[in-house]
Structures are given as C-alpha cells and as structure tokens.
C-alpha cells in the first residue's frame, strides 16, 4: 500500500495535470447531480408550496410520506429504482438501467423529498405572515405561489444547494442503478469506493479532494448569492 504522503502527492499530480479519467468522472458526476437537482427542484418546490398553502384530503399522508422519504437510505432507494427499471419492472421499457439516466432518476427521487420538505417549511413560515394580506388583495392561488417562491428565493436557493450536496455525495443509489461502469456510469463517489477497495488511494484521494472542493464552491456560491439577494 502506498504511504499517506505518496498518495497525496500522486493525487495532487492527477489534479494539476488534468488526468482524462479523473476529468471524465468529475464531469459525469456534475452532469448527473446537477440534472437531478434541477428536476427535483422543478417538482419539489411546487409540491412544497402546495403542502404549505393548501388544505386537501390526504395532506397529512403526503406530509408523512415526504418526511419519511427524506430519511430513506440511498441504497434502499437504489434497489427500488433498480426494480422499477429492470426488464420486469414498470419502467423497464425505458432501458435505462446502468445508464446515467437511471442515476439521474435515482438521485431525483432521493432528493425530491428533501427539497419538498424544506421548501414546505420555508414557504409555510412566510405564508402564515402573508396569507390574509394575499386573500385581502384577491390574489389567485397560483400567483400567490409564484410570489412566495420569489419572496423566499434566498432560502430556497439554500434548499436547492442542500439537495445538490445530498445528490453529489451519495453512493448507494447510483452504484445500484448505475453499476459503476468505467467510462459510462462511474461517478466520483462510486470511483472512490472502488479505488479504495483496490488500494489505489491516489485516485480516490484526488476524487475526494475534488468532491470537497465542489462542496466548498457550491457553499461559497450559495453564501455569495444569499448576500447579494439580501442586499
């Protein structure tokens, strides 16, 4: 096994020389997680707004489901998506298993409840302040929702970032539905798990440091954007 120092030196070399394999893995990771986050936000934010602003039959059940799914282990969710996408499953016709599409689907399902639950809370707090005012102004519901989403944009931006962080850092779901196939479905987290088991700590470390850097950049962007929007 390489020494700690050797591993770090090799990892640094891979990063600064722009190793093709490394780059490919990083880019696929970003493509999958960014797409999943965008889809999860497109679905989760309106769902959060609906749960915050409307009373309907079965709302309690939907809230319970959303809250429960927030804590679902990724590997269990990966298994469910795997079964859905397998040939015998209801979505087998898509032929998505072991493709980035399957990984996007799994991550979307994984983070959508997080986005919905957190945005529900953010919007609910604001809604309790403005509900009567909007009612007094005779604003139709859909317009209330658009106004609330815009009004809460700084907090919702953080919600989106939390969803992205969850997506890009998870390994269980993507390894089950993607299969960690080289040049096809290998992303940073699955590659780190594989390279660590093979004893190639340099690539694992390089990927790990890039993952941390991405987390740092995302948080910096979120903080910067929050400050800009608040000012």
């Amino acid at each position: 096994m390489q020494t700690f120092q050797q591993s770090f030196a090799h990892a640094w070399h891979l990063v600064v020389t722009g190793d093709a394999t490394l780059l490919e893995i990083v880019l696929l990771s970003l493509r999958v997680s960014v797409t999943a986050t965008l889809i999860a936000c497109a679905l989760g934010l309106p769902l959060g707004a609906l749960l915050a602003t409307q009373n309907f039959r079965g709302k309690w059940l939907v809230n319970l489901l959303v809250n429960t799914l927030m804590g679902m282990p990724p590997v269990v969710l990966g298994l469910i998506v795997y079964m859905m996408l397998s040939n015998a499953g209801p979505l087998g016709w898509l032929q998505w298993l072991y493709t980035p599409g399957a990984m996007i689907l799994a991550q979307t399902v994984l983070i959508m409840p997080i986005v919905a639950a957190l945005s529900r809370q953010v919007i609910d707090d604001r809604w309790s302040e403005c509900r009567e005012q909007f009612q007094s102004l005779c604003i139709p519901w859909h317009r209330c929702v658009f106004t609330l989403l815009r009004d809460c944009q700084t907090s919702l931006f953080t919600v989106g970032a939390a969803g992205f962080a969850r997506a890009i850092s998870e390994v269980g779901a993507v390894i089950v539905v993607g299969g960690n196939i080289n040049h096809l479905t290998r992303v940073m987290t699955t590659a780190i798990a594989l390279e660590t088991s093979k004893g190639d700590l340099a690539l694992a470390l390089a990927l790990g440091s890039i993952l941390m850097t991405i987390a740092l950049i995302v948080n910096a962007v979120v903080l910067g954007t929050r400050q800009r929007l608040q000012s």
């Binding site: 007094s136 102004l137 106004t147």
Partner: peptide, 12 residues
C-alpha cells in the same frame, strides 16, 4: 383593502 397590525411587505 385591508392593512394589518403587523405590516407585511414583499422582500423587494
């Protein structure tokens, strides 16, 4: 129109 005890303003 109605004005409430705690003024509500949009964050803009």
């Amino acid at each position: 129109a109605m004005v409430f005890q705690k003024p509500f303003v949009l964050r803009r």
